[in-house]
Amino acid sequence: MKGTPATDPDDKPEPFQCSVLRIEPQWIDYNGHLNMAYYNVLFDRATDEFWLELGIGPDYVKTRTGSTFTAECHLRYLREIHLDDPVRVSVLLIAADEKRLHTFEELRHATEGWLSATSENMTVHIDMAARKVAPFPPDIRTRIQAVVGAHSLITRPEGIGRKVAMPSKSR
């Protein structure tokens, strides 16, 4: 899995890269570009691919009654996406503790490489039987910590930790 500790000293860790995603026609709004709601859909699909790598995908819900819920999300729209634009999302696991995952995703044009949007998220682990926040099982926590360690070696992209605020006026 990309993002795990490298076995070859020359290998450098990279964020997880999802498969190439396509924009669906019904996602285009009256402005002729991707409607803001569907950026979340693209980020969510990419995160689902990453969760499979961490062992917390759909089978995890069925076999271990655990899942994740997004607790907070901050999206930045930087450049328009249009119908037929191929896109790819990278996922960086910034930090984790026993119950939470802090991720930063970048949505890029898959062939041209330009940045369209970013999404920073706080995700919580849920015991689905109790429907309450709960610690990750030890084996999953070990896998998550390995990825956090590998991803800590990656240069942090611009935009992590930003907040929504009006620009301050200089006097």
Rank of each mutant, 00 (worst) to 15 (best):
G159H: 09
R76Q: 15
R143G: 04
G3R: 06
P167F: 00
L115I: 11
M122T: 15
L101A: 09
G161A: 11
C18Q: 10
D127W: 01
K12A: 14
K62Q: 14
H82L: 11
L92F: 02
A6P: 15
L92G: 07
H109E: 07
D48Y: 00
V147R: 15
K99D: 07
L83D: 12
L34E: 14
W51H: 14
R76I: 00
T123D: 02
A117E: 12
Q26P: 02
H102F: 14
R162E: 13
L115S: 11
R171N: 13
C73Q: 14
E120P: 06
I56D: 07
M36C: 02
P167H: 03
L83W: 01
S168K: 15
W51I: 00
Y30C: 05
R162K: 10
F136A: 07
A129R: 13
R156V: 10
G55D: 12
A110Y: 04
R108V: 08
D127L: 04
S67L: 09
D48F: 01
D10K: 13
T63R: 12
H33C: 09
R79N: 12
L92W: 04
T155W: 00
D8Y: 03
P5H: 08
V164Y: 10
L78C: 05
M122W: 07
Q145H: 01
E53T: 14
T7H: 04
L153W: 02
F43T: 05
K99A: 04
V133T: 15
I23P: 10
N35H: 13
I23L: 05
C18S: 15
V41L: 05
M36P: 00
I144E: 05
E158D: 15
R100T: 11
T155H: 11
D29S: 06
S116D: 06
K169W: 02
N40P: 01
L101D: 10
G66I: 01
D48E: 15
E98L: 08
K2H: 08
L75A: 08
T111H: 11
C73I: 09
R79W: 04
P135T: 07
T142W: 00
A129T: 14
K2D: 10
G3I: 07
I154D: 07
R64L: 03
E53K: 08
H109K: 06
G113N: 13
R45E: 14
T70H: 02
D8F: 03
V91E: 14
S67C: 02
E106V: 07
C18E: 10
L83Y: 12
A37R: 15
L101F: 01
A71Q: 11
N121H: 13
I28Q: 11
R156A: 14
T7R: 10
I154F: 06
A6V: 10
N31T: 04
L83S: 07
A129H: 04
K132I: 01
R45G: 08
E105D: 09
P138W: 02
V89Y: 04
C18G: 15
P167T: 05
E98P: 03
P86L: 06
T111I: 04
